[in-house]
Amino acid sequence: MTVTTASKVQGGIFTLMVVRIADPYDPALDRELAEHVALSPGFFADAPVVLDLRDCLGCTSAEDFTALRQLLRRHRLVPVGVQNASALQLRAAKAVDLAAFSGAQANGARRAAPEVAPRPRLVTQPVRSGTQIYVRGGDLVVVAPVSAGAELIADGHIHVYGALRGRAIAGAAGDRDARIFAHRFEAELVSIAGRYLVSEAIAPEHLGAAAQVALIEDRLAILPGWSKG
């Protein structure tokens, strides 16, 4: 008498490609994938891939993954799972039947400050009222004006080579040595490592000229020009 089983579990080791996703909706992603696949189309044809989300703040809903899956399918890649996903990302991934690959830590630990400081983020367009720019673990350099009602946040320094009329929050993760530099200082609010000054509390003589803000003996100091402080 033979017993036929409907399934049989067997171990297997596969090499999977990992695609690192920063922003699932970034149009550059489409182009970059196309370039990669074009290099060796045969190799990539219907290849299973794992999505590495260590740099990704999005991908928190099932819709995000569905969109991403469609994008990958267009390049004949088959997403099978995720890696380094946050709890929220993991939940969304599971909702669309993507597996969790090891290396995934369902907590915030993976976001700890990287060993090597990343390149500063460079912004060349005016930062308008209502926009927020956050640089995690690094510096922010803006070579355009920052309007009142805009918000710059960086874990490192903030440099504005233009008028700073909005808010600037440096050392957002607690770095007390972070500074804010503005070519034309007219900020609504400045903050370093949680200490802050509102514009009303800023002496008028500091306004309208180049200035830097530093945390000195637990107080925010506004230093005219580029002195060493």
Binding site: E188, L189, V198
Partner: peptide
């Protein structure tokens, strides 16, 4: 939200933290 104006009309825009 996103179109803050009351602070301007009330004259406290320089005190918003």
């Amino acid at each position: 939200v996103g179109l803050r104006n009351l602070d301007l009309v009330m004259g406290c825009e320089r005190r918003v933290v």
